[in-house]
Design a protein around this nucleic acid. Structure first.
Length: 296
DNA sequence: CCTTGAACCTGGGCGC
DNA sequence: TGCGCCCAGGTTCAAG
């Protein structure tokens, strides 16, 4: 679910609560998410102080004193929320079935913070998320992180990098950009949006944006700018709130109101003067939204 | 090596 | 109201 802007929004929401706090106890309410929690996971977290919260691509990184780092991926439906201390329960009280949401609270971090006890709760109905533990040293060589491409934030991403990555590839642009080894953190929404902004067809062979000499064509410069802009805009808007995804503080991101093509099948293309209609196709099993009239 | 498709899960929306 | 089908922000395997 969450793409880079959503994970970054989660990171920013959790940081004020978690950084400097001590994890008194990590409560695992089931043995696995998508994969089993690693052996000794809860024990490794207990008593550790959170140094900082980081992010790489769509992974949240919880840096602990002692040198361990929690690597967390939210899958399609994962979310974190902050709650106060556990509600008091009355002994002997009739057991009230938990609400639908709480059934999917799989991990509870019980924190001691300067402001008192807090809980950070990971909820994930589909359980496509996963968590692992790694050492800070050599973190970038962890199997989940090792092959990730460049971040689309800041100044790191440029057309020369993309040219080198896309050169000679016959794969559709959509698939190439979705590949985390190309650009780390793009997902279905932001790839569709970036291609629309750049007026490029998701079906274009990726290699056609590169000259025979390996130089980026003008279109690739446009695409590079579009990717950086859409990610920056989405982060600034606090990400997108779709369906049940909420931010750590319970508020809603609002970038979904800025979608130009994603989930807008049948609607008018927003490119000024275009007059086309957004349609939906399926590429490698996933929906692509685009305007045939202006995306070439 | 490359690419596609299925699998992993639950829940919401829709048509009948 | 109920049932079946399709769809959903991602990643990892297996197979071609």
């Amino acid at each position: 679910m969450p793409e880079l802007p959503e994970v970054e929004t989660v990171r920013r929401g959790l940081a004020p609560v978690m950084e400097g706090a001590v994890i008194a106890r990590a409560e695992l309410r089931r043995p696995d998410l998508r994969f089993p929690f690693p052996a000794g996971f809860a024990e490794a977290l207990a008593g550790r102080r959170v140094i900082s919260l980081g992010r790489r691509a769509k992974y949240l990184l919880i840096d602990l004193d002692g040198g361990d780092v929690v690597i967390a991926h939210l899958g399609m439906s994962g979310s974190f929320r902050v709650a106060g201390p556990r509600d008091e329960t009355v002994p002997g009280e009739f057991h009230v079935p938990r609400g639908k949401d709480e059934r999917h609270d799989h991990v509870v971090l019980h924190l001691e913070t300067p402001g008192g006890p807090q809980r950070v709760i990971y909820n994930d109905p589909r359980r496509f998320g996963f968590m692992d533990l790694a050492r800070r040293e050599g973190l970038s060589e962890h199997p989940y992180l090792r092959e990730l491409g460049i971040e689309p934030t800041g100044n790191a991403l440029d057309a020369a990098y993309l040219a080198a990555r896309l050169r000679g590839r016959s794969q559709p642009l959509k698939a190439a950009l979705l590949d985390q080894k190309t650009i780390a953190g793009l997902g279905n929404i932001y790839v569709c949006e970036a291609l629309w902004r750049a007026h490029l067809s998701p079906e274009r062979a990726a290699g056609t944006l590169v000259t025979a000499a390996g130089k980026p064509r003008r279109e690739l410069l446009t695409l590079t700018d579009a990717i950086r802009a859409v990610i920056a805009d989405a982060i600034e808007a606090g990400g997108s709130t779709l369906r049940d995804h909420i931010r750590a503080d319970g508020s809603l991101g609002y970038f979904q109101h800025s979608f130009s093509v994603y989930d807008r099948e049948g609607e008018a293309c927003r490119t000024p003067g275009c007059g086309g209609t957004v349609n939906r196709i399926v590429q490698s099993g996933r929906s692509t939204f685009r305007c045939v009239a202006c995306q070439k």
